[in-house]
């Protein structure tokens, strides 16, 4: 199941684990990314708390935790080559995997059509 946040993240839900990345719209808005800082594996994230930092040539932006949970895996490939986020944001360029504290909280997130309405 694919879910979205108003902060322009996507979540692919498989059981109680969510794979999290930023949307194509977010990647387009940010422009060429040059630096990415990901959370540590094992980090406990709180919904709306800072999870990662992305930097374009122009500016730094925060990526927020979409839900409460524990980071179980991070995608080193985007740290090594941040431009991957510009070329495949909703595929190979996922950011981290989150073991959700309350998997049912994901029901409250946006579905794809609601997210599309949001970005117009």
């Amino acid at each position: 199941m694919l879910k979205f946040t108003a902060e322009h993240e996507w979540l692919k839900l498989e059981g109680d684990v969510a794979t999290v990345g930023i949307t194509t719209h977010a990647a387009e808005q940010l422009g060429d990314l040059v630096f990415i800082e990901l959370p540590e594996v094992g980090a406990e994230l709180t919904k709306d708390g800072n999870a990662a930092t992305v930097e374009s040539v122009k500016a730094a932006s925060d990526v927020y935790a979409p839900l409460d949970g524990e980071v179980t895996e991070v995608n080193q490939a985007i740290v090594d080559d941040p431009s991957l986020v510009n070329s495949d944001p909703q595929g190979a360029a996922w950011f981290f995997k989150l073991k959700l504290k309350n998997p049912s909280d994901a029901d409250a997130l946006l579905d794809e059509s609601a997210y599309k309405d949001l970005i117009g």
Binding site: G31, V57, K58, N86
Partner: peptide
């Protein structure tokens, strides 16, 4: 214009 479709990196 801050950038064109080419993007800041390629424009540079």
């Amino acid at each position: 214009p801050v950038q064109y479709p080419m993007g800041v990196m390629k424009e540079h």
